[in-house]
Nucleic acid binder design. Structure first.
Lengths: 249, 249
DNA sequence: CGGTGGCTTGACTCTCCTCAATGTGGGTGG
DNA sequence: CCACCCACATTGAGGAGAGTCAAGCCACCG
């Protein structure tokens, strides 16, 4: 599908129209990088912010584009991926509300960002945000610690990609989604899989077929249930945990 | 081998004995996170620093240990790795002089750090360093940008681990080492491989045998040369580059 | 000189990929 | 309301790339 232009969508400069910052998402405020800021600081942050509602499968930016914005997810889900010249794809992360992306070096974005579901983003101009960082130490501190968290998650994913079997990869993936849901105050067990099998495969370094086969295999073994498309039931949490750590067969 | 205790080695608190900070390494000063600081700032940084000379294969810290220090490499090479319960290992990075490691969350270090060669480290108490960050904004900025760089490198490695073939993995690895050597002012072509085949395998998500076979195969194809153990000659840079990007067969 | 550790090479195995067919659910239009 | 379509998911058969197991090679070192 042809990528829609970002500006074709409702991008409102809320600071200009006096809307409350980071509206409709108290949970996000706790997690996102605008967390822990005073009312005044949030106000100043808002002066460099745009809000955007985007449909599913919308390309926010592409690998190599000039990296002039940083994004924070207010609601929805985003995937980040890198491509090889022949089309092979590696999804390097699924991001959800409260998470941040778009930090890059001078060579532009290191990955493509695309919405998974309908998504609400906060967009910050990199240059303007930079100038604020000096003034609001807490902000830089928060962004720093979020980046460290991302790095550690990336290292965890390297272990998965390099050393785990298909079964272990899927188990780890399901557990991560489950604990994420729990952190958001959602139930840990019937977890939602908003992404396609192809996305899961490209995230785990597998093929669609292997992901599908592994799901049915785990179901046959009574470890998970597949109540409806897009949902997974974690029937045997303990077995799943053992699998994920390389313990169980 | 039984891990030697860190304190068994020459760990001198140089600030106390008045030694010049970050001695014997002008190049490192340019790259390391003490770069871009004023003389006075480096002096203050030195008050929280220890210097250590470590032998090869020395475990600096283990995954799960309380993360109370941050390290900067003055000279030598360090590998960071994670283990699965059954011993499978994933090396998540080889670090060289000027690079930093040890940033962790509250749950302790996320990986084990071990020297590859004889190594000189600067060690900073996390707590003390933290208190300096507020005073020296440039320092936090530098550490932040280094972490972003690490994150992007980790994402690049995910692409490698998840989607590249053995040949492509090895080609990418050699090119990365080559460009690193070049950045250090060393020749780009006869590059040194200070790490063992086992380390390379665990870094690339392969086995020792596959790494070895791939090396000889690339040599047979006239793409590399193996003049001596521990060294690789990049004979056909162009072919190597195409391979690394998934282009050439 | 024999022992040791690291590297290479070979034969065989197996997990996961490839290719292909079939199934399924949601949306559209007659 | 049903037939059709389409994208996505599942399932199957066969093959390939990398892993496993095992032997041999080489340099180094006591």
């Amino acid at each position: 599908m042809p990528p829609l232009d970002y500006d074709d969508h409702k991008v409102s400069r809320e600071a200009d129209i006096g809307a409350p910052p980071c509206r409709n998402c108290d949970v996000v405020r706790e997690i996102a990088f605008c967390a822990e800021l005073s009312h005044d600081e949030i106000k100043r942050l808002a002066t460099v912010r745009c809000h955007a509602h985007l449909p599913a499968s919308f390309t926010v930016f592409r690998e190599g584009d000039p990296a002039d914005h940083v994004y924070s997810i207010a609601a929805g889900a985003v995937k980040l991926y890198k491509l090889l010249s022949d089309g092979r794809r590696q999804i390097i992360g699924f991001l959800f509300s409260g998470e941040m992306f778009g930090l890059g070096l001078d060579n532009g974005y290191a990955y493509t960002a695309e919405t998974v579901t309908q998504t609400q983003l906060c967009r910050f101009t990199h240059r303007k945000l930079d100038s604020l960082l000096g003034d609001i130490p807490k902000l830089e501190r928060k962004m720093f610690s979020m980046t460290v968290k991302d790095l550690i998650a990336a290292q965890e994913q390297m272990l998965l990609l390099g050393r785990k079997t298909a079964r272990e990869k899927v188990a780890t993936f399901l557990l991560k989604l489950s604990s994420r849901a729990e952190m958001q105050g959602l139930p840990a067990s019937p977890i939602a899989l908003p992404m396609s099998r192809a996305d899961i495969a490209d995230y785990l370094g597998l093929t669609i077929e292997t992901v599908s086969r592994t799901f049915t295999q785990l179901k046959r073994d009574g470890i998970i249930g597949l109540p409806a498309s897009g949902y997974v039931l974690l029937t045997d949490d303990k077995a799943l945990r053992e699998l994920a750590e390389g313990g169980g067969g």
